[in-house]
């Protein structure tokens, strides 16, 4: 294996891990703080992809400005959609059995696929161009866009770490996650914390969609594929842990690339095999803590 080949495959792996991390960290964050497993989280990723497409291809054109506008717009809109979802659909179910949340978010996932088809049609939506050009490594080509995605995702990871470790609202979110009753008794506005957490998690997913779609395309149903894979990622990394999402996404991406190179027929299977092994050996995931049952 030449150095150039190893390098491009590393970049491919990091690109894939970056997208997985953005989706999975949002899912994990919402679960960690609110104990909500949002099955429609993948559909928010899909919405982000379509919003990115609309900004870059329909409104502004496939220029750097169009793509950046798409990223920002999808972040903002998905934060709003996330907040709205929490307020209207999720909140009434907090005191109900968790199965109802699963059913509701599952229904939302199905409905959003149809919403996307109604607005954008059933076809694959194609970005005609990637911004920022290409670099050559030997006779391999790397779109600079992939490097931008890797850098952005790394930055988001660092920001999340800073947010939860250093900011008051981040610390409060962690407190509310640990024990919402006591947090409320201490005067924290848990309602506000929950809606913020849901909005933040959804925004991350939407951002992931906008970042991914120029290379991976946007299509109805892409959310379902994404949610299944991000489950595997957070099960491996540990539910509710941002560091777990980083490690889980890297393991998933590395496993995939290694299989593509060595034995493509197991490309999809290996990640789930890893997941099963983690579940057997450390059911809370590599970085997960013991989950406290809460009522």
């Amino acid at each position: 294996m030449s150095i150039g080949y190893a390098l491009v495959q590393t970049i491919n792996t990091l690109f894939y891990a970056s997208i997985l991390f953005l989706i999975a960290s949002g899912l994990s964050l919402i679960y960690g703080i609110m104990r909500i497993l949002n099955l429609a989280h993948g559909s928010f990723y899909m919405l982000g992809a379509y919003i990115g497409y609309t900004a870059a291809m329909l409104w502004i054109g496939p220029t750097p400005a169009g793509f950046i506008a798409g990223f920002i717009l999808s972040l903002a809109l998905l934060a709003a959609i996330g907040a709205l979802t929490e307020r209207t659909l999720i909140r009434p179910l907090y005191s109900k059995p968790p199965e109802l949340q699963l059913l509701l978010t599952f229904a939302l996932m199905i409905a959003l696929d149809d919403v996307v088809k109604m607005i954008w049609g059933p076809e694959y939506k194609s970005f005609t161009k990637l911004p920022w050009g290409y670099i050559s490594i030997g006779h391999y080509n790397v779109p600079v866009y992939m490097l931008v995605v890797i850098a952005s995702s790394t930055m988001v990871g660092l920001l999340l770490w800073w947010f939860f470790a250093r900011t008051t609202i981040g610390k409060q979110m962690r407190a509310a996650a640990y024990n919402p009753e006591i947090a409320a008794a201490l005067g924290m506005n848990t309602d506000l914390l929950f809606v913020s957490a849901f909005a933040l998690g959804s925004a991350l997913s939407g951002f992931a969609g906008a970042m991914a779609s120029p290379i991976l395309t946007a299509y109805p149903g892409m959310g379902t594929d994404a949610i299944v894979l991000s489950f595997a990622v957070i099960v491996i990394g540990g539910m509710g842990s941002i560091l777990g999402s980083v490690v889980g996404a890297l393991i998933a991406a590395i496993a995939r690339t290694v299989m593509v190179i060595v034995y493509p027929l197991l490309e999809v299977a290996l990640i789930y095999i890893v997941m099963i092994i983690v579940l057997l050996v450390k059911p809370t995931g590599l970085f997960g803590k013991e989950i406290v049952e809460r009522r």
Binding site: Y5, Q9, H139, Y140, M146, L216, T217, T257, V260, P264
Partner: peptide, 17 residues
Amino acid sequence: VKLGTTDYTSYIDKIIS
């Protein structure tokens, strides 16, 4: 590859290699 695969980049570099 699996139907519905969205990321072919590793495959493409493998083919180039």
